[in-house]
Design a protein around this nucleic acid. Structure first.
Length: 561
RNA sequence: GCGCCUGUAGCUCAGUUGGAUAGAGCAGUAGCCUUCUAAGCUAUUGGUCGAGGGUUCGAAUCCUUCCAGGCGCGCCA
């Protein structure tokens, strides 16, 4: 609709230029916005305001000329000039009702587009190391990342989701030592407890399972416990598999799945880490200092140079990070979105700098990042500190068990990633009925309920009948719903391109509010047959859009509550 | 000290990429269930958009300087 309107304005401007009312050297960017206030019509353009100076006339006069030169179009009912010189377009009833046809035709695909043209995109998220259960911060990453995947897929991208984890570094050694210590009956207060050991109670569970000789199947591995307390390698393999399985189960309970699990160790095994460091040295961007090998990342915008190889010979995490992203690039992902906690934001400049130093034609701004700010967890009015080592811990599983999957996902995805998030457990628990997610789901269930009621009364209902009588929808509440429904595709494409899934949540709340308001003011099961069919058809369209939107957030759309 | 993010109603947050009189929810106040699910609706109270300066027809939005909070600034990840 915006496109068609834009062409009308373009045509009008060309006429005015030909008449000499506008200078011929203008290059107008025609902008059309949805109006915030329905008194301003359906769509509005500021074109006259932007052209006033070039035209040498007051904006309202320019607007009048543009309107006069507009070609006739069926879908435009009338135009008005308002305020400082806006042109407001009032669309015809027909064009406002057309959205119902579109929704019922497209069904689950309404709101989708082919903007991505089938291009490959990889979304990496969560990427927690297997040293403990997932916490709330991972949950935010999972909710945002998964929703982002759904949005990219809905807008025509070929999406691959990926989970990267460190399965061999220092942290994993600490994990193995911690489990071994627990096997020996030690605790964090004992003198022999490992220096950087993990104190969480879950370590005891791992130790018990190891000694019992349990078998563990995780998404990407199968391990049988050796049971030997002296065998640190066996303990490490078992502990990693055990915690990977825990994380898999957490993610499954959260309805989040990954296409690829990528192991840091594979980059060493394949020689890619070594190849990367050699390439960086060959490129002349490195130097030795204090026995370590440095990369001159300051040449690429970093604020200080970074160590790649430590004086003791091992690599820092920085190097495998670069090798990993080179690997992504070589897999053909010209678009990559990394969803991470903002506490790791310093890696952004560093990884990009390392990739530039490789000089392989990777664009400067590649990859994209979505950084979510920290999640603070409140319980009993106090902040719960998240520390794996101290063992005081709010896991994602705790939240799912207590608050429910839908509410947890909604809460974690409904706010802009750039904003810090306070997750008040008490609030989520005590006011679970007031959670916005139920408000939206209830609107969906209400439509289903009305349809059920209809069936109970033995009354039939044909969508085609409703579609034929959409002109019966004359109430303000019905027009408001039509306007709201028509916006959905724009919300989806904007949320996808800006990587902001929260705007879908905002939209759904508004749509649900419109519907609840309508439901209370007007009865759907009226005796007037054509009006009844029209209202049911509109309601079905609302139900479909709510279901589509909730699906993008990974939240269920129940038929009854 | 430097870098990134944030600052909008008592609280939690939106704000269509610079548009018209800044919006929701919760909390508060006053109402609505013999009628399709009251997990709902209606009305109403509440604002110098952190502060100052700038850019222009027009700023919560862009630039700049401060103030406040969060995160980061390791040969940890």
């Amino acid at each position: 609709m915006k496109e068609e309107l834009s062409q009308l304005i373009q045509s009008s401007l060309e006429t005015l230029v030909a008449q000499g009312d506008l200078p011929s050297d203008i290059t107008p960017a025609i902008q059309i916005d949805r109006t915030r206030d329905k008194a301003h019509g359906d769509l509005a353009s500021n074109i006259a305001l932007t052209l006033a100076k070039a035209a040498g006339a007051p904006p309202r006069d320019v607007a009048a000329k543009i309107c006069a030169a507009l070609p006739d179009a069926r879908f435009v009912e009338k135009t008005e000039i308002a305020g400082p010189g806006f042109i407001n377009f009032f669309l015809s009833q027909d064009s406002n009702q057309a959205v119902v046809h579109k929704i019922l035709d497209a069904g689950e695909r309404f709101g989708h587009s082919d903007a991505g043209k089938g291009q490959k995109v990889q979304v990496e998220f969560v990427s927690a190391n297997p040293t403990g259960p997932l916490h709330v911060g991972h949950g935010r990453g999972a909710a945002v990342g998964d929703s982002l995947c759904r949005l990219m897929a809905a807008t025509g991208w070929d999406v691959s989701s990926e989970f990267y984890y460190n399965d061999a570094g220092q942290q994993i050694s600490n994990l193995a030592l911690s489990v071994q210590a627990r096997c020996r009956g030690l605790g964090p207060d004992d003198a022999e407890w490992p220096a950087d050991g993990y104190a969480g109670g879950y370590i005891q569970d791992v130790a018990d399972a190891y000694r019992a000789g349990d078998t563990v199947d995780a998404q990407d591995r199968h391990v049988e416990a050796a049971g030997d307390v002296e065998n640190l390698d066996a303990i490490r393999d078992f502990a990693v598999a055990y915690l990977r399985r825990e994380q898999d189960q957490d993610l499954k309970a959260f309805a989040v799945d990954f296409d690829v699990y990528f192991l840091e160790s594979s980059l060493y095994n394949s020689g890619e880490v070594e190849a990367t460091v050699e390439r960086l040295i060959a490129g002349g961007h490195t130097y030795e200092k204090d026995g370590a090998l440095w990369l001159r990342t300051t040449e690429f915008g970093d604020d200080k140079d970074r160590v790649m190889r430590k004086s003791e010979g091992g690599y820092t995490y920085f190097l495998p990070d670069v090798a990993y992203h080179l690997n992504k690039w070589q897999r053909g992902f010209t678009r990559v979105i990394n969803e991470q906690g903002a506490d790791h934001h310093s890696t952004v400049t560093r990884v990009r700098a390392g990739l530039q130093a490789l000089d392989t034609g990777i664009p400067e701004g590649w990859p994209d990042y979505v950084l979510h700010q920290m999640v603070t967890v409140m319980r009993d009015g106090e902040e719960v500190k998240l520390s794996k080592r101290a063992g005081s811990y709010v896991t994602l599983r705790d939240l799912i068990d207590e608050v429910g999957r839908d509410a947890t996902r909604y809460f974690l995805v409904a706010r802009a990633a750039t904003s810090q998030l306070t997750f008040d457990i008490d609030l989520a628990l005590s006011q679970s009925n007031d959670n916005p997610v139920y408000y939206i789901q209830y609107a969906h269930a209400r439509v289903c309920s009305v349809v059920r009621k209809l069936a109970e009364q033995g009354i039939g209902w044909e969508k085609s009948d409703g579609l034929a009588h959409l002109d019966r929808l004359e109430e303000d509440a019905e027009k408001a719903l039509l306007r709201r429904l028509d916006r959905f595709p724009e919300v989806v494409s904007q949320a996808a391109s800006a990587a902001e899934p929260h705007s879908v949540a905002t939209y759904l709340r508004e749509l649900a509010a419109d519907f609840h308001s309508y439901y209370n003011a007007h009865k759907m099961l009226v005796d007037d047959e054509s009006l009844r069919a029209a209202r049911l058809t509109l309601s079905e369209a609302v139900r479909q859009v709510i279901a589509n939107g909730l699906h993008l957030l990974g939240v269920s759309a129940p038929e009854s509550m």
